[in-house]
Design a protein around this nucleic acid. Structure first.
Lengths: 128, 128
DNA sequence: GTTGCTGTTCTACGCGACGTAGAAAACAGC
DNA sequence: GCTGTTTTCTACGTCGCGTAGAACAGCAAC
């Protein structure tokens, strides 16, 4: 119950971006951002989607527990439940979790990580 | 292009099991194992599937590059391309790869790993 | 309070993935 | 050549996702 479609991911990208700026996104905001992004480079939502399309996606994301919607305000506010980093890390744990031999997997995983990342990991695991 | 369905996963489990035993699996073998597993505990393939069902799944797994089929022998031999551990590790990299801030994700990830696993990681990263 | 705009819900269609399998073709042994 | 086994081809139902229309609800101006 984890994988996202292309559009779902694009919308999440917008929400994640807003999250860092502590922005309370309304539907209109998202639409504006998405059409801006059309000319720009990042979230390639573009394509001038129908309003309802985005809403449907938002609902589905809400059902998946990735998006929270404040129903109090009249134009509802949408926001990502967790940061992109947290979400990705959680996904990694999900993938890892299904393995019977977690340590062996970790060994392989570490094997193909860039040196600078390995360095980061050493620091994080540090003191011991 | 990575996620597996339930049955696909079950079949991969059988192939992965056979892989450790360096077994060359034929369709019949797999079917036998799967029905045995029905009574047992592990790979809950069970349900007495039609032969063609398993073959279809094998074909799809082959198309996905997870299974290799030796067409030389008359009853074809099927085997997992990579070990379960390698596959899982690769999946983790896939998940991680799509993140703009990989190191932040790794930080979160490391944050929720068991102590014994952390220890393993320290060893693996060792020789700073 | 009726008109009109904006935001929200409901419902639905098309497509592709997956579980499932029958029909038919290719083979191997007798 | 006939028979049993294996493989291919084709297909159907379901579900997730991209997509959106139709209808409804709230609000603001008149």
């Amino acid at each position: 119950m984890a994988s996202l479609g292309e559009l779902e991911r694009a919308v999440m990208d917008l929400l994640w971006a807003g999250r860092e700026a502590a922005t309370a996104n309304t539907l209109r905001d998202l639409l504006a951002q998405s059409t801006v992004a059309q000319g720009g480079a990042a979230g390639h939502v573009g394509k001038d989607l129908a309003v309802t399309t985005v809403l449907t996606v938002l609902s589905r994301l809400e059902k998946k527990g990735l998006v929270e919607r404040e129903r109090g305000m009249r134009p509802h506010r949408y926001q990502a439940v967790s940061s992109r980093e947290d979400h990705t890390a959680e996904l990694m744990h999900e993938v890892l979790g299904s393995a019977p031999d977690r340590e062996a997997v970790l060994a392989r995983f570490i094997g193909s990580v860039t040196e600078s990342e390995a360095e980061t990991l050493r620091k994080l695991l540090g003191h011991s």
